[in-house]
Amino acid sequence: MERLDGRKPDELRPVKITRNYIKYPEGSVFIETGDTKVICNASIEDKVPGWLKGQGMGWVTAEYSLLPRATGVRTVREATKGRIGGRTHEIQRLIGRSLRSVVDLAALGERTIWLDCDVIQADGGTRTAAITGSFVALVDALNKLVEDGVIEQLPLLDFVAAVSAGKVEDKILLDLCYEEDAKAQVDMNVVMTGGGKFVEIQGTAEAYPFAREELNQLLEFAQKGIAQLIEVQRQALGELADKIGRVTKCQKPDPTGQV
């Protein structure tokens, strides 16, 4: 099949990361992946959730929001509904898990990094763009702690990024736009580190089951795309990129199911 924007099956949409996009947060990024545009802000809070107090551990968590006219038809703000939807809650947890996977929480100390991800325009892949952009915002926030003498070095084990892949009209494709995603036979989101390790794989057959060979190709496409996204992160971060990965051991609290 010919893709709507003429891309090859294993080709990403154009990606652009702009740092220091918002004035006030310790880290702020505007990420554009094709027509999907997300603002990712990282804020430092000098406290941790109650269940972590006194353990000498930090925390990284996220909130996600899709603005009312980020899509073709206006959606009602969740604040108006008075509750967070299931999809939003799932995405927030995914972003938090993904970022925590590469942070040494013990080296962070008893403080929380909040990642606020606001989608201002959606054309597929909003959660993966949020993860990829949030990592860069997180680096800037953590670097501010280093510059202020609060911590000695960036408590980061590796890079992390995410991308979508899918099966559309019996073809395996990377980085689906909305039109492709809407008719996908298989929809998958993959999160990986710079070292090529998987953080999360979310894959679902929308109509019929898919074969192991197709799963392998989906993961191969995702791995290729994530390697390219991490290179974009590196270029955006400049000299800061060389300071990532100097920590060798990640210490975390026992799993609790917390966001």
Rank of each mutant, 00 (worst) to 15 (best):
S101K: 11
V76F: 04
K53D: 14
V160F: 07
K197N: 13
G72R: 11
D104R: 09
I151N: 12
R212L: 07
G72W: 09
R212H: 11
A211E: 15
R87V: 07
P49T: 00
V168C: 08
V146M: 02
Q55V: 04
I39H: 02
C117E: 02
G34D: 14
R7D: 14
G124A: 06
D116K: 08
E220P: 10
G27I: 06
D148T: 09
D118Y: 03
D170G: 05
G133Q: 11
R234K: 15
V232W: 06
Q121I: 02
A211M: 13
T204D: 15
I120Q: 09
F159G: 06
E63L: 02
P49W: 01
L173A: 10
E179Y: 03
P155G: 05
V186G: 04
G257W: 04
F135Y: 14
L67K: 02
S98E: 03
G195W: 02
N41L: 10
K183W: 10
Q217I: 10
R127N: 05
V76C: 00
K252V: 08
G109V: 07
V48R: 01
Q228H: 08
L66Q: 05
E180F: 00
F210R: 13
L157W: 05
W114P: 06
Q202R: 10
K37H: 04
G34I: 10
E206N: 08
V150N: 06
V259W: 09
L156D: 02
N189L: 06
Q223Y: 12
F159W: 08
I244R: 10
D254T: 02
K243Y: 08
R87H: 04
E11C: 05
V76L: 09
S98H: 01
L94Q: 08
G72Q: 15
V48T: 07
C117S: 00
K16L: 11
A182S: 15
R77A: 10
T80S: 13
E2V: 12
R127L: 04
Q92G: 01
